[in-house]
Design a protein around this nucleic acid. Structure first.
Lengths: 197, 197
DNA sequence: GTCTATATCTCGATAGAC
DNA sequence: GTCTATCGAGATATAGAC
């Protein structure tokens, strides 16, 4: 039944995101999914294949989120790109943790991640255009790293940041405040870059 | 001999940082350290205890790096704090990966990490003082998260960012450029906050 | 302190009854 | 499709000779 495969996939998604690939056993996944352990290897050929399926599900959505908006000024388009990326992250909050873990562990799928990073970077670089120098401390690469860090850090580190908001859950209001903060920073940086031209 | 324990500790540090706790076996550590596997359990009571020792090695330096500078204006002190933190990260590159991994994995040592985070936050909050509102999208918490993300992202994601710099090693010149970029951003944000007062 | 050898466990994966 | 039973490999940890 397709339902069984789905339950395995979802349980695997949750556990891999929580504890990583190596720390999760087939038995763990079977127990959480409420199915027999052997069924994991019946529906998916191996634990490795199951993990790749979990990742593939996210990458599809990720690629869509990276589509470049065509309307408006470069500044409006940059804000739209950031909003689309934030939408995706908030709908798939486990994805960021999975990717972050793969990066730290030096996973074999790192080239795939790099490809996504380069795609996103080229869009930010095109948007910034000749507003920034071609190299040095204010080049497009630096700003791309900065934007990524500004956005991702909030979600990746949510488990420890909870204390900052005094035990409050990371609710919709907080995500909205973060979004507003990010747009304020981007505008402030763009203003300065434009005035410096 | 103390030398043997040190070699085990260093090998464990390197491997845990690279691949994570679960993906590293006692045999891996013994091979890298060039010692007999049984000696790991002679010098450290368990693999878990060895991991804790690795983390504790960094604790002292981390706390020192968080010491608040006393000289200069609030702006100078903020820049100094950032530089001290960057110095620590560059000297203990693996520590950030270990901590980031602990956060993502929801480790049992999370409260210890939160304590360090809160210490650093309270210093940033004191430095920003009444330059920022007490709550909302521009409060001290948001800026603390932003500063952390801006700094950490470069080092945590170094494995995939290499491609951005066209395969160049992350050398001293790149770290310096990043540092300059960070100070530029901080100054730009502070200028805007001051003009808005 | 350092070694070999091994006990005991859990892992991913498979065989085969139903 | 789902189950039980089990394989071989590799894990942590220990025993005991030297």
């Amino acid at each position: 039944m397709a339902e069984t495969a789905d339950r395995i996939l979802q349980a695997a998604d949750e556990l891999f995101s929580l504890r990583g690939y190596a720390a999760v056993s087939a038995r763990d996944i079977a127990e959480r999914a409420g199915v027999n352990k052997a069924l994991i290897f019946y529906y998916f050929e191996s634990k490795e294949a199951l993990f790749r399926r979990v990742l593939d599900q996210y990458y599809e959505g990720h690629v869509k989120a990276l589509e470049l908006p065509t309307e408006g000024s470069y500044r409006e388009r940059l804000h739209t790109l950031i909003d689309h990326y934030l939408d995706f992250i908030e709908d798939n909050y486990r994805y960021l943790q999975l990717v972050q873990r793969e990066i730290i562990e030096g996973s074999s799928r790192l080239p795939y991640i790099q490809q996504n990073v380069m795609t996103l970077y080229s869009r930010v670089r095109d948007l910034l255009g000749d507003l920034v120098p071609a190299s040095g401390a204010l080049d497009a690469r630096q700003f791309f790293v900065s934007f990524s860090g500004l956005i991702n850090t909030f979600y990746v580190n949510a488990p420890v940041l909870g204390e900052l908001w005094a035990g409050q859950q990371m609710d919709a209001a907080q995500r909205l405040a973060r979004r507003e903060h990010l747009h304020w920073i981007v505008n402030t940086l763009l203003d300065r870059l434009e005035s410096g031209k």
